[in-house]
Design a protein around this nucleic acid. Structure first.
Lengths: 148, 148
DNA sequence: CTTGAAAGACTAGTCGG
DNA sequence: CCGACTAGTCTTTCAAG
């Protein structure tokens, strides 16, 4: 993982469909050299994969919320993960410091579907209570800006 | 935006570097037909682009936090966005319901850098006070699962 | 890492339902 | 309007230097 790898990763974050030759022109390498490095970055797990960025609004997933989850007693992170993973509305989940045990990021089509998802979260046997915060507008959302 | 488009988007979310021919085999279209639909999805904004998914740990961005931002008086979302946008540690930001005006998602190399970023957020003239929640572990993080 | 070559993919143009 | 087909060009990918 040297500076050249970092620049390759930056290129791919900016556009995952750019060709190896294009990346090579930016970083000063030939296309096969770039490919070998990308393959290695995928094998070592630095690059997890390539995905399309979709507009949630356009797909009818315009409503989201952050939910603080407070668990009953002591529950391991692995168990929380196992219970949340089957819910498709769960976009992300984190264990955190503070009063709550976890923060869950939910995304749904509308308020109604969000409520349904929330009820499913609240219905999990490990969950004691939840505190929800509904998102009014997405101000900012950007790729994890690597390398800089 | 019909069921075929949704399946194409699903394919690209799963792997943004798959070829049009591969996608075509899945959805039952020829490669040029798939390309035309992808071009249209890009033009209409349903697809915003293609990006690489990087492991934040591997790049030395292992520490993150969610920060509730409470503003002084009434501040427009646009102004909040304008102040947060220059900070590279800000991965995402949302205006929300509840007591806080916004939730800011920060990502940094370590606790020290996170503290520096937090101080920069707290130093903004629009910010009254903040409530931070540090992430202990990422339980789950997945693409927005379109189409389903 | 680079070069070179063969296989395959991209994409514009054209035609048919 | 949307999809299939074809042909030229570019990309990928392997091997050898």
């Amino acid at each position: 993982m040297n500076p050249i790898d970092q620049r390759i990763v930056s290129c791919l974050v900016a556009n995952a469909r750019s060709s190896y030759a294009e990346i090579g022109k930016v970083v000063g390498l030939s296309a096969p050299a770039v490919k070998r490095r990308v393959d290695r970055l995928l094998e070592t797990g630095v690059l997890r994969g390539f995905t399309a960025v979709v507009d949630p609004e356009a797909l009818g997933w315009g409503t989201e919320a952050f939910v603080e989850v407070h668990c009953r007693g002591n529950v391991s992170p692995a168990r929380i993960r196992a219970r949340l993973e089957p819910l498709p509305e769960v976009v992300a989940a984190y264990t955190v410091t503070g009063a709550a045990d976890a923060i869950v990021h939910l995304r749904a089509a509308d308020i109604g579907q969000l409520e349904t998802a929330l009820e499913r979260v609240r219905g999990l046997e490990i969950v004691d209570r939840t505190v929800s915060t509904v998102v009014l507008s997405r101000l900012l959302e950007r790729p994890p800006t690597p390398g800089t």
